[in-house]
Design a protein around this nucleic acid. Structure first.
Length: 341
DNA sequence: GTCCGGTGCT
DNA sequence: AGCACCGGAC
C-alpha cells in the first residue's frame, strides 16, 4: 500500500527527473562533496539560483580538501548574492572538519553528518540518502507540503512536524532512497507547488486527500505571520579619484565579513538626522530582510565629516568592487550612483 | 506588496 | 521554544 506510493514516485522520477549539475546517473557513483555542497546551497534557495554558484564553486574547488584550504574571504566572495551568509561560514568550517578530522571523507550516517557545522536534520538525512543511499527520512518544505496534501493534513507545517515526519517515514522506501528524496524535491518544486499545484500531472493525485477535496492549494493550512518592523539608516557614497569608501562588517552582526558603505547604525524609529548640507543628493532605498524592512537614505558626497565615519573605512577602487564580497543590499545601494550620476 | 524556507543560538 | 538570518518567485 505505502510501497505503492514510493513506486509511483520512483517511476515518475525515472521518466521526468531534472538534469542538474550535482546529480549523477545510476551507473555513476555519487560524489558526497558535490551532494553536500548542493544541499548547503539549496537550503532556502531555489534550484535555478543555485546552479551558477554550484558551477563556480566546483570549478574553483573540485574537492572538499580544496575548499578547506581556501580563505574564508574568498568563500564569502563566491557566495555573494546567495544570502544567509552563515551558510558560507559553516560551509568553510565543515570543509575544514572533513578535511582535517575525517581524512577528506564524509561520514555516511545521518547522526554523524548532523554533528557537522551547517548540517541539521534535513541536510543530514538528504546527504545520507542521496550520497550513500541510506534510507533516511528526508523532510524539507517540499516534502512537508506533499505529505500534508497526500494525507490531508490541514494543520500548518510549523505546528505539525511530528505527524508529518511519521507520515513521511511511512512512505520512505528501503531501496533507491536518494532517487526517492530527489524525486520528491522535483515534484514539490514543479508540481505540488504552494499556490497552484498541477495535480493533473502528479503521479500521486489518485492517492491524495487534498486533491480529492477539490481545494488542494488549501493544504496544509497557512500560519498567519505577524508583520515585520521597519528600520532606518543613512549610508554614504563617497567617491574621490575613482576610490569609494567602504568598510568590512565585523563582530557577530548580520552580514559580517561582507563589505558595505559607511553609514549609521540601523535604527528602529526613524531616519537619523543629518545637517542640511549633507542631504542632497540622496535617494531612499528599501530592502527587506527576513525579520525587518530597512529604509536607507543614500547620501552622495565627495567629502564626509569624520564625525559620521568610524575610522575603519578603506578607499577601494570603484572598478575593482567585483573582487569584494558585497550583500545584495549593498549592491542595491550602490546603484543609486548610476541614477543620480 | 506577500509568501517561502533549514540551521544555529539562546 | 522562539528568534535571527537573505533573496527571489509570484
Amino acid at each position: 500500500m505505502n510501497s505503492k506510493i514510493s513506486d509511483k514516485v520512483l517511476q515518475w522520477y525515472d521518466a521526468n527527473r531534472r538534469t542538474l549539475p550535482w546529480r549523477y546517473e545510476q551507473v555513476q557513483i555519487a560524489d558526497p562533496y558535490r551532494v553536500w555542497l548542493s544541499e548547503m546551497m539549496l537550503q532556502q534557495t531555489q534550484v535555478d539560483t543555485v546552479i551558477p554558484y554550484f558551477q563556480k564553486f566546483t570549478a574553483k574547488w573540485p574537492t572538499v580538501n580544496d575548499l578547506a584550504s581556501a580563505d574564508l574571504d574568498d568563500v564569502l566572495h563566491m557566495w555573494q548574492g546567495l544570502g544567509y551568509y552563515a551558510r558560507a561560514r559553516n560551509l568553510h568550517k565543515c570543509a575544514k572538519t572533513i578535511s582535517e578530522q575525517f581524512d577528506g571523507a564524509f561520514p555516511r550516517s545521518p547522526e554523524e553528518l548532523a554533528n557537522l557545522p551547517g548540517i541539521g536534520p534535513y541536510a543530514s538525512a538528504a546527504i545520507a540518502a542521496i550520497a550513500f543511499n541510506v534510507p533516511a527520512t528526508v523532510v524539507d518544505g517540499n516534502v512537508a507540503r506533499i505529505v500534508s496534501r497526500v494525507f490531508g493534513f490541514s494543520t500548518p507545517i510549523q505546528q505539525n512536524q511530528k505527524q508529518i515526519y511519521s507520515a513521511a517515514e511511512s512512505l520512505t522506501p528501503l531501496l533507491r532512497a536518494g532517487d526517492y528524496a530527489q524525486a520528491l524535491m522535483d515534484i514539490g518544486s514543479g508540481i505540488c507547488t504552494p499556490r497552484s499545484p498541477k495535480c493533473q500531472t502528479c503521479p500521486l493525485h489518485t492517492d491524495c486527500k487534498a486533491y480529492a477535496s477539490g481545494i488542494p492549494e488549501q493544504f496544509p493550512g497557512k500560519l498567519i505571520k505577524p508583520s515585520i518592523p521597519t528600520r532606518y539608516a543613512v549610508a554614504f557614497i563617497c567617491i574621490k579619484d575613482n576610490n569609494i569608501l567602504l568598510r568590512k562588517r565585523t563582530g557577530e552582526k548580520m552580514l559580517h565579513g561582507l563589505w558595505e558603505l559607511p553609514g549609521s547604525d540601523w535604527y528602529a524609529d526613524s531616519l537619523p538626522e543629518l545637517p542640511d548640507e549633507m542631504q542632497a543628493p540622496y535617494a531612499d532605498v528599501k530592502h527587506t530582510f527576513s525579520h525587518f524592512h530597512l529604509i536607507t537614505r543614500v547620501v552622495q558626497a565627495s567629502e564626509i565629516d569624520p564625525e559620521y565615519l568610524n575610522g575603519a573605512e578603506v578607499a577601494c577602487n570603484i572598478n575593482e568592487l567585483d573582487q569584494l564580497a558585497l550583500s545584495t543590499l549593498t549592491k542595491k545601494l550602490l546603484k543609486v550612483r548610476n541614477r543620480n550620476g
